[in-house]
Every structure is written in C-alpha cells, then in structure tokens.
C-alpha cells in the first residue's frame, strides 16, 4: 500500500494535477461568491439590501457541493484516467503492486485533492463574508458545520462513482462524459421525484363563477414503502436542500454513504477482475 500511495502522491505533485486543482478551486470559489452575492444583495429586507450573513455561507457551501464534483470529475480523469489510458497502471501491476492498493491510493489522492479544493473555497467564502463592509452576523454554528460535512460526504459519493467509471470503463473520454452527466442527472432526478411525491389528486378549478372544482389523478403517484424511500432519497439531494432552504436535513449522510459503499465495492471488484490493455 505504501508503494501505491507514494506513487500516487508523486504523480499528484509532479504532473499538472495539483496545479489544476488549485486553479479550478480559485475559479469555482470566485464564481460561487459572485453568484451568491448577486442573489443575497439583490434581495431586500425592509427596503434595504440584505447584509452578508450566515445564510450567505450556507448558500455558498450548498453550491460548492454542486460545483466541486465537476472539478472532481476533471481531476479524476486527469489523474486516474490518464494512468489507465497511458497504460502506466501496467507498470504498477507488473511490479507486483496489488490492484486493490492502486485503487485505494487513487481514491485517497482524489479525496485529498477535493478536500484541498473545498478548504480553499471555504476559506474564500469565510474571508469574503467576514471582511466585506456590509457584514452583519457571521458565526460558524452547527448548521454551517453540518452543511460542510454534508457537502463533503456528497463529494465523496461523486468521487467514488467517478473512480468506478474510470476503472470500469477504462476509456478516459467516455468516463468523463459519464461523470459530468451525473450532476445534471441528479438535478433531473430530484424534480422527477418531486412529481412522484405530489398528492394523489390535484384540485383544479373548472369554473370560477360556479366554483366548480375537479380532482385530477396524479398518474405518477406512488404510495407505501416506495413513496417513503423516494421521499427519503429526494430529501437527500443537494438541490432539494437549496430549493427548500432546509439546510438541517440529514438524509444526505445515509444516501451518500450507501453510494460510497456500493460504488467502492463495485470499483474494487472491477479493478480486480478487469485486465487493462
């Protein structure tokens, strides 16, 4: 394991992967601050622009959980995808490094890259919120720390899936396309679930004068345990968290944890069975 880790860290620092992480982090951070600032300041409270407060941080962190996986997909392709496509992974296998160790080393380095990127972003958000002239109330409370943890575990789930794609598909371009499609897929899925979770009947006013109403059947409606499961998964989505402003919802931990466990198990099976040509 030591050889695999040393090898992965050497590549991380010697190739452009490290630089790529730093640049992407700065761009993402600046973009999120600008976007959130525009939203927060443009919304007024009692006729005056809102001040930068904890909700600014919460929005920034939630957006980070949406955007940072994109950086993860790019990094994973540059780091693991290149190793597979250049076939330099074969040098490791033929020198007797266990394939599982190679997978785990890549996993650790990718997570470290994302943590580094996230920390840079969080520091940027905090520094901005703390030192802009319009600040009112910034305090790291349990909601903020909870949201940071939630974002972290969501990113970890994405990383597990990206790594699985790279090792399973072993074609760099196809793997990055699939990786980048994951976030829009989660977004679409969230709103698909929303339709399913609507009530079984929708009330619509047929005639306003007579106040005649009609109950329309929700064809997507499901009930029972399926509904409970969908409801649980729906509330774990970062898009739900942002939309509902329910920053304290904890469903993400279980769902992201399951994704991490399942994709890591599949990844380890894939790397053991697959023959890299």
């Amino acid at each position: 394991m030591k050889c695999a880790l040393n090898s992965a860290f050497f590549r991380f620092f010697r190739t452009k992967a490290f630089l790529l992480v730093l640049i992407i982090s700065l761009i993402i951070g600046a973009g999120i601050i600008f976007d959130t600032c525009t939203y927060v300041i443009s919304t007024s409270v009692f006729g005056r622009p809102r001040a930068i407060a904890n909700d600014f941080l919460a929005y920034c962190i939630a957006k980070l959980a949406v955007v940072i996986p994109v950086a993860g997909a790019v990094f994973c392709t540059a780091f693991t995808g290149s190793d597979i496509s250049y076939r330099s992974i074969n040098n490791k296998i033929s020198t007797g490094i266990n394939k599982v160790h190679i997978y785990l080393a890549d996993y650790i380095v990718t997570v470290i890259a994302l943590v580094m990127s996230s920390v840079i972003n969080l520091l940027m958000f905090y520094a901005f919120a703390k030192f802009v002239p319009q600040r009112s109330y910034i305090k790291i409370n349990s909601m903020i720390t909870g949201l940071v943890l939630k974002s972290f575990i969501i990113c970890l789930a994405y990383v597990s899936l990206y790594l699985l794609f790279q090792y399973f598909i072993s074609r760099k371009m196809l793997a990055i396309i699939m990786s980048l499609m994951l976030i829009p897929a989660v977004y679409m899925g969230t709103f698909l679930f929303e339709g399913i979770l609507e009530e079984p009947y929708r009330k619509s006013v047929k005639n306003e004068q007579t106040e005649q109403v009609e109950w329309e059947l929700n064809s997507k409606y499901v009930g029972g345990t399926t509904r409970e499961v969908i409801d649980y998964v729906y509330k774990s989505s970062i898009f739900y968290v942002m939309d509902s402003e329910d920053f304290t919802c904890d469903n993400s931990y279980a769902v992201a944890g399951s994704v991490i466990a399942l994709s890591s198990a599949l990844g380890l099976v894939a790397v053991n069975k697959k023959e890299y040509t």
Binding site: C3, N6, S7, F10, R11, R14, T15, K16, S82, D83, Y86, R87, S88, I89, N90, N91, K92, T95, I97
Partner: peptide
C-alpha cells in the same frame, strides 16, 4: 507504458517508487 506528462527522469523515478 510511460507517463506522458512526466519527463524521462520523473518516469524513471516513478518506477523506482513503484
């Protein structure tokens, strides 16, 4: 199977690390 983003020296160093 050489890493194309690395120099000849670094490719050999990587193999030594492996």
């Amino acid at each position: 199977a050489v890493f194309r983003n690395l120099s000849a020296y670094d490719n050999l160093k990587l193999q030594y690390i492996n």
